[in-house]
């Protein structure tokens, strides 16, 4: 009987340790992989017929880890960069064709439509992206459309919204209005508990 009890305690403790995984410290490469894993809920995906929309919440350590591209990040450099980036919520978004073709030529053959889409994503799309935090609707302040010129089957965007608090007070709801592929309004919900429970980036 005592043997069974010990096994149960061992299983319970292992379970607790695995649950507490988010408070772990991670080196840059692990950190990037961890955020990119959809199971951890910092990356959300909406599958549509021929395309998918994928958004990623980009915490500061994730951005810095991506910039340094090394597992050995100097702590003072990290702190300086963190100070520069603070005060915003950063996101990225990818729109990708499932069949692998040029996303901007999806469901169209017309070059005119292609250029219309390029124009839309370059100049108008920013207005279609908002963030709801604490019942406030925040407009997108930083926006960059990363074109791949048909080489990759996707287009990427990075954007950011101003934030008042260091700690996230409520869930963040990212709203993206698609006008190109007939999808319309899309909501991406990022839970407060996840955003305030990020792993630490190991610096030296």
């Amino acid at each position: 009987m005592k043997k069974y009890r010990d096994i149960l305690i061992f299983i319970f403790l292992s379970f607790l340790m695995s649950c507490n995984n988010t408070s772990n410290k991670k080196v840059a490469s692990e950190y990037i992989l961890w955020i990119n894993d959809t199971a951890n809920n910092y990356r959300k995906r909406k599958d549509q017929k021929n395309i998918f929309f994928e958004t990623t919440y980009r915490p500061l350590p994730y951005i810095i880890a991506n910039e340094f591209r090394s597992d050995h990040i100097d702590d003072s450099l990290y702190q300086v960069r963190k100070l520069e980036l603070e005060g915003m919520h950063y996101f990225s978004m990818r729109i990708q064709a499932k069949n692998g073709g040029d996303i901007l030529m999806q469901n169209t053959e017309s070059k005119q439509e292609y250029f219309k889409r390029v124009n839309h994503y370059s100049y108008d799309f920013q207005k279609n992206i908002t963030l709801i935090e604490n019942q406030d609707t925040i407009n997108c302040k930083l926006f960059n459309f990363i074109r791949t010129h048909g080489i990759a089957p996707y287009v990427d965007f990075v954007f950011a919204f101003p934030s008042k608090d260091k700690q996230v007070q409520t869930d963040l709801k990212l709203i993206v209005e698609d006008e190109v592929f007939g999808v319309g309004k899309m909501n991406f919900l990022f839970k407060k508990e996840r955003l305030n429970n990020l792993p630490k980036l190991i610096t030296q």
């Binding site: 599958d47 549509q48 007939g182 319309g184």
Partner: peptide
């Protein structure tokens, strides 16, 4: 028409999931 297309597109993808 646009709204109906958007609703049907999103609903179909969720039902498929």
């Amino acid at each position: 028409t646009d709204y109906n297309t958007q609703i049907i597109n999103q609903m179909n993808s969720y039902i498929e999931e």
